[in-house]
Computed example of a mutant assay.
Amino acid sequence: MKILMYNTVAEELPYVKDWSAKTGHEVVNLFDPLDTENVSMAKGYDAVSTQQTTVMPAPIYSKLAQFGIKQIALRQVGYDVFDLPAAFENNIRLSNVAAYSPRAIAEYTLTQLMNILRNNKKFDRAMATGDYTWAAGGRAREIYQMTVALIGVGRIGSSFAQMLHALGAKVLAVDPIYRAQNEAFVEYTTLDDALSRANVISFHTPLNSQTKGMADKSFFDKIQPGTIMLNMARGEIVDMAILEKSLLSGHLYGAAFDVTPNENEFMDKKQSINELPENIQRLVQLDNFYLSPHIAFYTNTAIKNMVEMALNDAVTIVNGGYTENEILR
């Protein structure tokens, strides 16, 4: 079987080579995301795979169908990049990798929470100027004193909840899906109740019609003064203008984001600070805001699993089989 892998990154190549040697399937790598310009490259292949934050518009699926390709295997969790109606209309089966390493993202979220609690950005900036005083950063809070509201308690949220519980934090869970196994370390509650009680709010939910724009003015009005906000999920969940106002006013004590709504303009690029979107330029200057380039997932384990699971699913679907990672109508 011949598989065309779009948007390959260098770190994936050793795992692709190992998988090909193990399975006997041929994988050809392209280093750009799948789009209307390069979809024609898929002609003559049996399957395609990609990982990207740029959307795949409707013409892509009809082209793939013309080439006899029946699927797209996504090497990531978030599948909001798909045009689902267009894919299904063209009988293109879709899969994602829903659990390549939930701990990777959970551990990174915990890392950023600790950074905020310990005022590390303030201390780092002060020390760079020669200021080694305690007052430069301020006193920290300890995590066992925190009540953390998790918006979305799937694989990643559950992993984060277990870590928080082990460290002594109170964990509140907001999710329409109840998982009985989580009762040992979370308290399920409503969104309004969680927002009124939490010191920390962390998003671990997919982007969909229910979550897009969820953290709007009404949402921010319900949170306690001095709350910390964490978003390693999708940028479009949070209204960034209101986030900025809340950080400047002190209503939010701090925030750490691995995503932004406009990240395709600047993520994964080298550029001058002055070339960044204006709101990002302002936000990164704040001592209480942490921004990372969508790398919460970025571990050896995660990269290996993303490659192997997506390629295995591609083969399974092409052969007419079914995988638990398939995105259903």
Score class of each variant (00 low, 15 high):
V174D: 01
A241I: 04
E263I: 02
S196R: 13
P225C: 12
P206H: 07
E244G: 00
Q210C: 00
L252P: 05
T129S: 14
Q145R: 14
Y253Q: 14
A198D: 09
Y178N: 06
A161G: 13
G152V: 03
I228S: 10
S246K: 12
F160C: 01
A166F: 01
A233I: 01
Q162C: 02
A184M: 05
R179V: 11
T189G: 09
R234E: 04
D131Y: 07
A184V: 07
Y178S: 02
A255P: 10
N262T: 15
A166G: 12
R155Y: 08
N262S: 14
T129A: 12
A180F: 07
A256C: 12
E236N: 13
Y178W: 11
V200D: 09
E183D: 15
T260S: 15
N231W: 06
I156K: 01
G254K: 10
G130L: 05
K212Q: 15
M232I: 00
A215E: 08
L195S: 10
G157V: 01
I201N: 11
E244M: 11
A135M: 13
P225A: 11
Y178Q: 08
Q181L: 02
Y144P: 00
M232Q: 13
R179I: 05
M267I: 10
I151E: 03
A215K: 07
G168R: 06
E142K: 13
L150C: 04
T147V: 12
E142A: 10
Q181K: 13
V259L: 08
V148F: 07
V238H: 06
S249W: 06
A194E: 11
K222H: 12
K170S: 13
N199P: 04
M229A: 12
L164C: 09
Q224D: 03
K212W: 00
N264W: 00
A149G: 12
G254Q: 11
A136F: 06
A241V: 11
N231T: 10
G254A: 14
A140N: 13
V148M: 07
D131M: 08
V259S: 08
F257C: 15
Y144S: 15
H165E: 01
I151R: 02
A161I: 01
N264D: 14
T205K: 03
D216N: 15
L195R: 09
R234W: 01
F203G: 05
A215G: 10
T133Q: 06
F219W: 12
L243Q: 05
R155W: 03
Y144T: 10
E236Y: 02
Q145M: 12
S218E: 15
A161N: 02
D258L: 06
S218A: 15
E263P: 04
T189Q: 11
T147Y: 03
I177V: 15
P225V: 09
G137F: 03
A136N: 07
P206F: 11
E265L: 15
